[in-house]
Each structure stands twice: as structure tokens, then as C-alpha cells.
Design a protein around this nucleic acid. Structure first.
Lengths: 207, 207
DNA sequence: TGATCTTTTGACCATTTGGTCAGAACGCTA
DNA sequence: TAGCGTTCTGACCAAATGGTCAAAAGATCA
């Protein structure tokens, strides 16, 4: 087998690569790409540094691997928003899924946030391509709901931004949220859901 | 003058330190603390690296200086929220000021975001002290407004988080916003203001 | 103008860090 | 179990980076 075709991934390769991804996610999410070191990742993964580099070509390669897997996970909650079904329920469901993602996958959220903050050097194409297309698609959908008088008329793009912002905030700015609410406010995601719900659907104006 | 008292800052010192702050803000905001290098800062400031270190003791010291100046600027818009005056107007005004800050001082916003994302290692005390106190104070104020039926009943803490999230999003996630809206949507801050306004005060439910 | 204090610089240093490599250890299967 | 491909490691390297220092250059003012 002298051709360039990589032979099938062995069991050990699959396992170790997964261990490395897990460790790298941990480290990249809390220190950013530049802030993370291979030594740290190796330590968390309990592997030697050369061993890391046996499974991935470079630090960049590990990071790229994580990002590549991230975007789909990231967009799935929005993809699930369906044309049929009650508009208010659909939007509420989307907010809920996004908030759950922030609660259950904060490291992924921070990895993403770190990347965007630095100008998305390794993700720009994805943003301008698949992300943009999906958002435009769902914006059209929401506009139809508005035309039918099912929801208030508002900029769909900025509504989506608002949903991203308020949900991801609880993952990305978790330290700040905790600092304000007190160390471990276990109810914070529940309270957040309730508040966002009221805010987004009824607004602040008194009844 | 052999005592430890630092003698008065000279004109040149004041000027150069300001130039360095400006350059460092630029670099730290776009690369984070670890990602930024003294060489980059020196280049932007058009000074030699040893010259930088003549004005600031270390990379840490420059960063600390920026952060120290940041928090006040950061909290001022919230401080301005007054008990007298119409509640809805006061909250609207706060949102507006925050959005203007995101538009006019995106680097400061990103510097802050970078810091929080990494767990706020150099800012935690400020968050748990002054920030927390101010938020609690304004939360009490809002609760009084709710008791008086002036605004809908909602968690004041999470309302404040929501305001932070949706406004800072336009600074911190600017690349993503641009990627979705198209390269240079000059109206994005105007549209954002309008959308947030409608969302927060009337909500999505159809009239 | 000269003396003194401030500012600037080039050369240099130690550490950190991403990455390489030769060979040893391991594990699968004929 | 022998043989061979896979996995792993210690030693090592070059570049990047934060920081130092002695001395030169520039201000300042009596």
C-alpha cells in the first residue's frame, strides 16, 4: 500500500485522538489558541508531547480539528426551527436549546467565543458561508411569520443576534455572572430562561 | 530626594505612557494577553522594546494599567440610571449608552471580554466587589419600579445580564455580525438599537 | 555653556515553546 | 512465539519572547 491513502484508523488511534480532543478543548477553551501550550494539553491528556504530535501534525491541526467539529453542533439548534408549528413555540424552543447548549457545553461556547473575539482568523469562511446561509434562510422564515401577523415585526437578523448574545453570555461570561449572583447560584440557568422568556415575548412594558 | 516617593511625572512620561496605553489596547484587544507580544506593542507604539519597559515595569504592568482604567468606564453607564425619571426611559437610556459604548469603544469591550473569557484572573476582585455592589444597588431600584407597577416583574439581575449581552455582542462578535449581514452594514448599530428596543419593551408577541 | 537628570538604544540573556528524530517498547497476527 | 507494523519516549533544536544593562543621546536649567 504505497499510495497516499491513509490506512484505516486503528482502535488505539481513535481512542487517543479522542482523548487529545477532550484535553485540547479544555485547554483551548480556557486560554485561547495562543495562550494554550502543547505541554498543557499533553499534561491534561496524560500523554507525552511527542506522543501528541504523533496523533496530530501540529498545535494548529488539533485546533482546526476542534473547530471543524464545532460549527455543526453550533448551528443545529437553529436548523431545528421549523416552518410548520407555532412561531412563538418555535422561537421559544430555539432559545431553550441554545441556553441548554450554553449550560451543557460551555467549553465549546468559549472555544468559539475566543475564536470570534480574535477576529475569527480560522473560521471566517465558515461564518460567511454556511452560517450566513442558514441565518438568511431562517430570517426569511421569520419574515413570513411576521407577514402573517404571527409575531411582531422586527429585524430577524438582529433577533437572532440577540438570542445568541443572551444565551452564550451564560457560558462565555460565566465568571462574571457568578461573581454578581454569588458563587454558586444553581438556579441561574432556570432564572435566565424565565427572564429571557418574559423579556423576549412580553417585553418590559407593564401590562 | 532619597525617599521612595516617585517624583512628579514629566511631560514626556505622560505622553509616552499614553502612546503605549493606546498601542497596548489595540494589541491586547485583538490578541488577548498571552497572544499579545511586547514586540507588537512596541511596533504599534513606534518605540523600541527596551523603551517600552522604561515606562512600564513589565507586560503585566501595562495590562494591569489598562484594566484598572477600564472598569470605571465600564460601569458609568449603569451608574447613570436614576431613581427619579421614568423607569422605561431610564432603562432605554442605559441600553442606548451601552450600545454606544460598544460602537465607540469596541477595543475596550474586547479587552474586557478577553479577560472574562479566560476566567478574569486579574479582575475577579473587581467583579465581586464594585461591580457586584453596583448591580445589586440598581437591582433594588428596579425592584421598586416593579413594585410600583412601572415595569413588568422580571429578575433585575438577569435583565442586566441581557442588556450587557445584547449590547456587547456588537463589539465582541463584530466579525460574526459583519459576516452575516454582509461586509459593511453601516446601519447595523441603528438597526440593533431599534430591534433591542422593540424586543425589550414590547416583546415578540403580536399586538 | 556646562552639569545633571531623563530618555533611548543595541547587544544580550534565560526561558518557553512548537516541533523533530532515532530508537525503544508494545501489540497484533501469521 | 517470531516478526513486523504501531505506539511511545528522551534528548534535542531553533525560534520567539519577556526582560536586563551599560552606555549613548537628548533635555533641562542654573
Amino acid at each position: 500500500m504505497a499510495d497516499g491513502t491513509p490506512r484505516k484508523e486503528t482502535r488505539i488511534q481513535a481512542e487517543k485522538r479522542e482523548i487529545i480532543r477532550e484535553a485540547a478543548l479544555e485547554v483551548f477553551a480556557s486560554h485561547g489558541f495562543r495562550g494554550a501550550t502543547l505541554d498543557q494539553i499533553a499534561e491534561v491528556a496524560k500523554l507525552s508531547k511527542p506522543n501528541l504530535l504523533y496523533y496530530f501534525d501540529s498545535k494548529e491541526a488539533i485546533h482546526a480539528d476542534l473547530l471543524a467539529r464545532l460549527l455543526d453542533t453550533w448551528l443545529d439548534p437553529l436548523r431545528e426551527m421549523r416552518e410548520d408549528g407555532d412561531p412563538i413555540r418555535e422561537i421559544r424552543g430555539y432559545i431553550q436549546r441554545k441556553l441548554e447548549a450554553a449550560r451543557d457545553y460551555p467549553r465549546e461556547s468559549r472555544l468559539f467565543a475566543n475564536e470570534i473575539l480574535q477576529g475569527a482568523p480560522r473560521l471566517l469562511d465558515e461564518l460567511q458561508g454556511p452560517l450566513r446561509d442558514l441565518v438568511n434562510d431562517k430570517s426569511d422564515l421569520m419574515r413570513r411569520w411576521m407577514d402573517d401577523g404571527k409575531i411582531a415585526r422586527i429585524s430577524p437578523h438582529h433577533l437572532i443576534f440577540a438570542i445568541w448574545a443572551v444565551t452564550q453570555h451564560y457560558a462565555d461570561f460565566d465568571v462574571q455572572v457568578r461573581a454578581v449572583l454569588g458563587k454558586d447560584d444553581e438556579a441561574r440557568f432556570h432564572d435566565a430562561a424565565e427572564t429571557i422568556e418574559k423579556l423576549f415575548f412580553s417585553g418590559l412594558a407593564p401590562r
